[in-house]
Design a protein around this nucleic acid. Sequence first.
DNA 1: CAAATTTCAGTTCCACTGAGATGG
DNA 2: CCCATCTCAGTGAAACTGAAATTT
Lengths: 150, 150
Amino acid sequence: MKADWTPAATMPSRILEMPTWLLSRAFAHSHRLLFEGFASADSHGYHYRLLATLLEAGPASQAVLGRLTRIDRSDVVAALNDLAERGFIERSTDPEDRRRNVVTITPAGVDHVRKLDDVVAGIQEKVLARLSAAERKQFLRLLKRMLGDA
Amino acid sequence: MKADWTPAATMPSRILEMPTWLLSRAFAHSHRLLFEGFASADSHGYHYRLLATLLEAGPASQAVLGRLTRIDRSDVVAALNDLAERGFIERSTDPEDRRRNVVTITPAGVDHVRKLDDVVAGIQEKVLARLSAAERKQFLRLLKRMLGDA
DNA sequence: CAAATTTCAGTTCCACTGAGATGG
DNA sequence: CCCATCTCAGTGAAACTGAAATTT
């Protein structure tokens, strides 16, 4: 027989009840769903954030894109390289300030981001699946408040 | 003059309003605070989860610790190496099943985890700082519900 | 033989740092 | 001279994979 060293069934209750722990579980869940969703559309989170921003804000320099999307300057470079290779964006140097690359979304890029929009919308639904409509509203309100959008 | 390609002030509104985005911001915030808190106590999240679990559940094998803490088997090895070097845990092979290492927390380890408990408690407070007591309760309820603890 | 445990080596994603080259 | 931009190289935490060695 084995004292099989399975002393408790769960991790410490004080951790299980922690806001930070619950947040990390919730994020892990949402992140996994998003990652799989993007992968199934041959894409990534950075791609979606960049394309969606270009679509909504219009052509922008890479520095501005980094600020808008909260993606680091050097990660913006890498992600835009991918997107350019696949024909979803184009770079051209800004004639008014030749340090800058003006990044423009292509028609193929628009198609791509529309598809990703659908994927992402489906995932929002899944993430909140267990909550009623009223609870969802409340949950989003509390999240925003917690982040200071009070 | 510069058309400075700052077209909009924020990222796309459809992303800003997404549950998945808000969750990722909330997690990033909480994660940053935890990381800094652990660093200020010369520790890491894995260390805390392992020590707190040992304290609450008693001695356990590494495989069991991995399951309880949700830390991957191979990361458990590395984290326990650190903790053993610093005298916070001890390993001994289980006489009843010599594949297993029985991991035991030392008095120094107990001291350490108590300090971390204080750090972590302070951070819970900071994370929820903008919410009232009633909102905090509600927020935790919704998080748990979303995760299926319904 | 099949299964579990510990360990090591290596990978991937995400976020970031530092430095060089170009240009304002 | 100083600052901004783009780019590349590299770092580090977190989570994971594959495989080997040992034992049950």
